[in-house]
Amino acid sequence: MDRTIARKSWYRRNEIAVTPWLFLAPGVLFFLVYVISPIFQSFHLSLFEWNGLGGENNAAKFVGLRNYEELMTDSAFEVSLINNVKWLVLYLLAIPAGLFIALFLNQTVTGIRLYKSLFFFPFVISQIVVGLVFTWFYDPRFGLLNEILGWVGLGPVNMLGDPDLVTYGIIFAGLWPQTAYCMILYLTGLNAVDPEQIEAGRLDGAKGWRMLWHVILPQLKPATFIAFVVTIIGALRSFDLISIMTNGGPFGQSRVLSFYMFEKALSEYGFRMGYGAAIAVVLFLIMLIFISYFLWSMYREERGH
């Protein structure tokens, strides 16, 4: 009885501090089990050669860092890594594009609800649908792209069949819904912009680009941070569009790390779980570097204030 009373009295004394952790506990538990644990499992699996099957004849064989050494001489991995760099650089165009569309949609003009619906539309459709739409758009026989090029006197282009152009064509397709997502983030951020600061900026003579750079953008830093993180993660994943539009072709020139990982680990051409895990580790480290940099930048700015 005394122990029960003591426990109750301890909880009542620490109720304000403990209650938030009780609400967070299920989410933290799921995060540890389904996010953190698989990361360490991938590191561990990358040190083995294993086809993913059970039985005595298919036991995992420890090979140390041999999978990582093989990556250094794998031309397909090199192509995938270069394509991921292209995705990272060009996919970031979605952020300024989303910002300027949000600034336009934040105005009070006739028909603004219709414009918002049109720009919001790409966000609500799946990546599979986006991939199919752009596959038809790029089709060299009846695609709208070659129709438009024909109007200005340019020859037909086989966007998805040209090894030099295919990655850029898929990136452009991915920018469509990603720009819509960044637009939504910035629209939400613009609703929280302090009108008093804008009025103060006008009194100081700020307008146009000066108003945007010195008054509005500093208040949009949280939205910009989220846009950067989500866009970088989207650029490094980029699996579904490639799978739908080219399946890694032509000649493997549209592969990225996530798709190459799938080919090596889970497709009928691979079944090398350890090698696929090594690719996943490299992909994770690249993502970790970018996200850690942005987190450190945000922390440093907050500490400076």
Rank of each mutant, 00 (worst) to 15 (best):
L175M: 03
A6D: 01
G155V: 14
R303S: 06
L47G: 15
I82P: 11
G248D: 13
V166F: 15
G270T: 01
L295S: 13
G143T: 06
Q107W: 08
K264I: 07
V33L: 15
T73Q: 09
H305W: 10
R303P: 04
S42C: 13
D139Y: 13
N83K: 10
F290V: 01
I279Q: 02
I184F: 14
E15V: 09
N247Y: 12
V18F: 13
S75D: 09
M1S: 09
E302Q: 07
Y181E: 12
G276V: 00
W136K: 13
T179P: 00
Q219T: 02
F120R: 00
S238L: 12
Y186P: 03
A76V: 12
S46Y: 04
S117R: 03
W136L: 13
L65D: 15
E263V: 12
L144M: 12
G201K: 14
E49P: 10
L241A: 11
I242K: 04
M287Y: 03
V28G: 09
G201L: 14
I95N: 02
I279G: 02
G208S: 13
P122H: 05
E196V: 07
A265V: 09
P20V: 04
I233C: 01
F77H: 01
I286N: 00
A6N: 00
M1E: 07
P250M: 10
M183K: 01
R202Y: 15
A280N: 02
D162A: 12
Y186C: 04
S267F: 07
A173Q: 03
H305S: 10
N14L: 05
E15H: 11
I289Q: 01
R13P: 01
L45N: 11
L288R: 11
M1A: 09
Q107V: 09
E147D: 13
F225G: 03
V18D: 08
R141I: 06
S46G: 08
S243I: 05
N247M: 07
P140L: 12
F134E: 02
L71C: 07
T167N: 10
F104T: 11
L24Q: 14
F294A: 03
R255I: 08
F40L: 11
I170K: 03
F172P: 04
Q253A: 10
E70F: 06
E263Q: 14
A277F: 03
L32K: 01
H214T: 15
F77D: 00
I226G: 09
F43S: 05
R13W: 04
Q41A: 03
L190W: 05
A59F: 10
F239V: 07
F294I: 06
A278D: 05
F259E: 03
L132H: 08
R300G: 06
Y269C: 05
F104L: 15
K116A: 05
